[in-house]
Design a protein around this nucleic acid. Structure first.
Length: 573
RNA sequence: CGGGGCAUAGCGCAGCCUGGUAGCGCAUCUGGUUUGGGACCAGAGGGUCGGGUGUUCGAAUCACCCUGCCCCGACCA
């Protein structure tokens, strides 16, 4: 490809609205442009990278026996009614009506469509198992799209769906997909970690997420320093240190705490350990059997409540902090809410089960209760794990310390069971001749997000440092000046490499050398070949890895040497 | 949804407080000199100052409304 004819609009300055490094570099180097909030154009070099990511994913999925198909982006809402997700999925599902006033939506995921398809065609257990996947644009109307490709509204995803006659078969496929994902992410040269995960709005039983470890990650991952336990903090369990309570036998008594509301302030005011405070939060439930109900949840003063765990404990889809009126409606007083005497269910974290000598809000203005014992003083508490794991907690498996890291979720595997196949009636005739419901798994990879995740891990001062397998071109062929000899020598090498199947971006622009080097390094091409009058006079051409020393070689030898270096660099991942 | 910030040439920004002919750097175009790590000289083009309403003799600037973008946001009951 000749640079002068190729569309690569690079930017010298960082765009003002980009925050994370991948967003800045992908914009600056001319890979993407924003169209509207959370929606991007993939420019020619961006698309080249996206296609390479897709190709690797496709190759490994095919190797694992999955079959590619393509489903529509527009879906009829009836399917979502049938799976009972129309309500549950919420405003992230973009809905609209077509000209016939037919309710439709843009697919954020495809469980409904695939189940609809498979339910029509599946007859016998002999057709199972099967794993169908697609690589396609999805749309989720995110509350807050951000960080460029990291959290877009429209994004490219590989989604696979497997169907099985029994759970043992599903478990085997789950493991196969888990292993396939590990292979795929290794091929990208990523530092990543598989962690236990909540199943979120997809549902099902088992799930693992794959995270690229990066400071800019939006997820928090808890992992054990002693064993291989790792989980998203939405799900992670751990054992916390429980402080000795000073006064075990103390009677509960009320104490005046005018204008002292926060856990830290109350602890300081009463000169007690913050961990002996009970933080009581009031929530409004969304979805589930108790949709709309108000509940309270208690954690220790130095802990944080994990809302997703609370939603599970309360059998809700999600929870939202209650308004002041709602707090009052269950007998609470904002700023002084406590677990005693509330007219709603109270979920109490396990770490408080046997605790006493606690301090909690008194449900009266300007008052707290001291000497509180959960067992004696809070009758109807429902105990559950609702606290968020903290750094330094003990691992429930090996007691070593838990550490926290930030991660970018790039893939997730789910054992769905019959969550969709039952309502969608994905049935078949089993070996005994009876009608049975298929069991199902689903497996996603964020293809466009991967592009950003790779850049987060592979960048330096000069720009992006793509692994050879993903670079938009493997070689930047830089012609210094416009002399006939330079252009002829360049063209000859260009053809030699192209014929060998190497992708070369030949920079024959009338630009100064510095500009060409900067652009090649910004867009991250792994190898450079430099053809200049000065070196040609000495009978040599230079080549080298991006950012490394350049080596001189006879023109006839350069192509072979570059191919050898590329193979070496490519195999190191 | 709540809070904060921003919106002026393709990009990055100044000007606004204190109203009076719209500026700078980069990029672009022309000519010339250059040419081994984002050159230099000379010239040129490019703006509904996000949109609307109002105040005023006069608005990029003041007021109000709207839109878009960016950042932060469970709470500490």
């Amino acid at each position: 490809m000749r640079y002068s004819r190729f569309f690569i609009p690079t930017l010298r300055d960082d765009p003002a609205d980009a925050e994370v490094i991948s967003h800045k570099l992908l914009l600056r180097a001319g890979f993407i442009r924003r169209v509207t909030s959370g929606v991007y154009d993939y420019l020619p070099i961006g698309l080249r990278v996206l296609r390479k990511i897709e190709a690797i994913v496709r190759e490994e999925m095919n190797r694992a026996g999955a079959q590619e198909l393509l489903m529509p982006m527009v879906q009829p809402c009836e399917l979502w009614e049938k799976s009972e997700r129309m309500e549950k999925y919420g405003p992230e599902l973009l809905r609209f009506r077509d000209r016939h006033n037919h309710e439709s939506c843009l697919g954020p995921t495809h469980e409904e469509v695939i189940c609809d398809l498979v339910s029509r065609e599946l007859r016998s257990y002999k057709q199972l198992p099967m794993n169908l996947y697609q690589i396609q644009a999805k749309f989720r109307d995110e509350i807050r799209p951000r960080f460029g490709l990291m959290r877009g509204r429209e994004f490219v995803m590989k989604d696979a769906y497997s169907f099985h006659a029994d759970d043992a078969c599903l478990r085997r496929e789950y493991q196969l997909m888990f292993d396939t994902y590990t292979t795929i992410f290794n091929r990208f040269g990523l530092t990543f970690r598989a962690v236990e995960a909540d199943t979120g709005s997809i549902g099902g039983s088992d799930s693992h997420e794959f995270h690229v470890l990066a400071e800019s990650g939006e997820d928090l991952i808890a992992h054990c320093s002693g064993c291989d336990y790792a989980a998203n903090v939405e799900k992670a369990v751990s054992v916390r240190d429980v402080p000795a309570s000073a006064a075990d036998a103390e009677e509960a008594s009320e104490i005046s705490t005018p204008d002292v509301t926060s856990a830290e302030d109350v602890a300081a005011f009463l000169k007690v350990d913050t961990a002996l405070l009970v933080k009581t939060l009031v929530y409004h439930l969304h979805g589930g059997e108790n949709n709309g109900a108000i509940v309270a949840a208690c954690v220790r003063g130095d802990d944080q409540l994990q809302e997703i765990k609370l939603a599970h404990a309360a059998a809700a889809d999600s929870v939202e902090l209650a308004s002041e009126e709602e707090v009052r409606s269950v007998g609470g007083v904002s700023g002084f809410v406590g677990p005693q005497g509330l007219s709603c269910p109270v979920y109490v974290d396990e770490s408080l089960r046997d605790a006493s000598g606690l301090v909690a809000g008194a449900n009266k203005a300007d008052a707290h209760v001291t000497g509180l014992s959960m067992q004696c003083d809070v009758a109807d508490a429902v105990y559950a794990d609702v606290r968020e794991t903290r750094e330094g907690d003990a691992c429930t498996r090996c007691s070593a310390a838990i550490e926290l890291s930030r991660g970018i979720e790039i893939g997730q595997v789910f054992a769905l069971g019959k969550r969709y196949t039952e309502p969608m009636e994905v049935m078949f005739q089993d070996q005994q001749g009876k009608r049975a419901v298929a069991t199902m798994g689903c497996y996603g990879i964020g293809v466009s997000r991967l592009m950003a995740a790779v850049v987060e891990q592979c960048n330096d001062e000069a720009g992006i440092h793509w692994p050879v397998s993903l670079a938009p071109f493997q070689v930047a062929l830089i012609s210094m000046g416009q002399s006939e000899t330079v252009l002829a020598a360049s063209e000859s090498i260009y053809h030699e490499l192209s014929d060998a199947g190497i992708e070369v971006l030949w920079d024959e622009r009338k630009e100064r050398p510095g500009v060409k080097f900067k652009d090649a390094e910004l867009m991250g091409l792994p190898m450079q070949i430099v053809v200049g009058d000065r070196s040609l006079e000495r009978g040599v051409i230079e080549y080298g890895e991006r950012g490394g020393e350049r080596i001189e070689a006879e023109p006839a030898m350069v192509a072979a040497a570059v191919i050898a270096s590329l193979q070496q660099a490519g195999s190191s991942h």
